[in-house]
Amino acid sequence: MYRLVKPIFFKFDPENVHHFVVKRLKWFNDFFPFGKSVLRGSFDVSFKGLEREVFGLKFKNPVGLAAGFDKNGEYVEALSNLGFGFVEVGTVTPLPQPGNDKPRMFRLPEDAALINRMGFNNKGVDTMAERLRLLKDRHPDIIVGGNIGKNKNTPNEDAVYDYIKCFDRLFDVVDYFVVNVSSPNTPGLRALQEKEPLMELLNTLQKRNCKNNISRPILLKIAPDLTDEQLDDIIEIVKETGIAGVIATNTTIGRDGLYSGEKLKGEMGGLSGKPLTKRSTEVIRYLSEKSNQAFPIIGVGGIHSAEDAKEKLDAGAVLVQLYTGFIYEGPGLIKDICKSLA
């Protein structure tokens, strides 16, 4: 079915189509008679052998949705009914912000890729927190990750306060946190990946985490463009701060080996999809082997098939996430991966 409608979707602006599709998915899930049952029956695969326990959380399967798809936590239930084992929302910032000027998302069909420069467009952490509170009241079993960032106008020296605000506001309504310092679309953000500011940020959040009777797993999302020396620093930082793990990887600023035309390749932003498959797997394998599997890794980047997911898991990932592959291959990809793993 998705193969029939995808050519139609791809004739229109990617961001507009995204909003059109997810709104109708939510309507079908919430209001169509038996909509939830239809979605689960068509896509959800539940086998005991698919279950995973990671970070002290029980996942019904290891295939999650990466951050960026549901920036405001509006579609979590419907997306979960498509078969995702967990849904990561955000990136969210303390204050609402519009993001970068449009157009800001571009398809590269020849490369099965996307370029985006969204710029953390979201409705703010208060809106998300209230929405997730209502969701958790109804569906406490859905695993939700909160991907947090800083507002564009917040200088890096004050960035820690933005992360604290998001952390405190979402603490009661998410199951784990992801610290996003690796998006290429917020000016200066990637400078926070350097060892000293990153240690300060993660240690601050860990101290707040330990002040609560219940702590939440904190993960760090890293860029695929880091050198081996920088990855060594990441391993050391994870061990020293005691955070729960790493998400590898975010989008890349590289453009090597693309088949698409120069105009598309020249668009600013982060590249995702198949061109990232190999590099993200390399990063996962490096972190896993060099750390002697000292911490869990969620693998994301260029997963367009069950084989791609297996490569990430074989390289050392314990869970995987989809984004661009989900857009190009459709919801059947989740089922394919789960069936192959089962």
Rank of each mutant, 00 (worst) to 15 (best):
N212L: 10
V178Q: 06
Q230F: 06
A223R: 07
K195Q: 14
L189V: 08
D232T: 07
P184C: 11
L192R: 02
F171L: 13
Y176D: 06
T227I: 05
K150A: 09
I235V: 14
E200L: 14
V179W: 07
L170W: 04
I235D: 02
I234P: 03
N209A: 08
I234E: 03
K207L: 15
S183L: 10
N153I: 11
N153R: 00
N213W: 04
P155N: 06
G149D: 03
L231I: 11
R190T: 00
D158S: 00
D228V: 14
Q230W: 01
K239I: 12
K207M: 15
I235W: 05
Q206H: 11
P197E: 02
P197S: 01
L226C: 02
D225G: 12
D172K: 14
Y176E: 01
S183R: 06
K195P: 09
E200Q: 14
R169E: 15
N212W: 13
Q206M: 15
R169A: 15
D233V: 03
N185F: 00
Q206E: 15
D162Q: 10
V238G: 04
N213M: 13
N209C: 10
P187R: 04
Y161S: 13
V238Q: 01
I237W: 04
S182P: 01
E236T: 13
R190S: 07
Y176G: 01
V181E: 02
T241P: 01
N185K: 06
Q230C: 09
V160N: 01
K195H: 11
S215M: 15
A223C: 10
N156T: 07
R208T: 03
K150M: 11
Q206K: 15
I214G: 00
